[in-house]
Amino acid sequence: MSKPVVATTSLAGCFGCHMSLLDIDERILDLIELVEFNKSPIDDIKTFTKECDIGIIEGGCCNSENVHVLKEFRKHCKTLVVIGECGRTGGLPAMRNNNASITECLEEAYLNCVSVQANDEKIIPNDDELPMILDRVYPCNEVVKIDYFLPGCAPRADLIWNALVALVTGDEMNLPYEVVKYD
């Protein structure tokens, strides 16, 4: 039987959740026995080359590129798992949601901030190749259907591992206190 195929991505996140995924220590050897990776920063496959069983998403959506990638994941993965607070609630990037409009954010970042230098033409980046910024940061489940969420900032390696193993084996997930506490 072929191994389950896993894809991962980091959207508007800090890659901390991916670091946590790598924090499974020597179990990474078990992992590559257990699953095959497709599109993922772990193996640097940039686009989907086959349909996947599990998509792991870190981060929410702050721009049109994030939305595009997330929709691709929904299209190509049977099960989507969001890991971490940013994907689940918007997280730290969503701090911009309540306090300022996106226009104010852009003006502060590119025009008005004391650290802005050498932008004499007063340009807010506008190249067509750049992703378009969204009016606010959206959690993934507002854009596509998400099947499972693993909370934490970042979720503990053991939580990600246990969830992944449960998904692949179909066994009940092991959730001891140590794995879901956040301090």
Binding site: S64, S101, I102, T103, L106, E107, I124, P125, N126, D127, D128, M132, I133, L134, D135, R136, Y138
Partner: peptide, 15 residues
């Protein structure tokens, strides 16, 4: 709708 404001602020057409 979500990209409208930022595109206007940057002076670009939404794609």
């Amino acid at each position: 709708a979500a990209v409208q404001e930022s595109c206007k602020a940057a002076g670009r057409q939404p794609n």
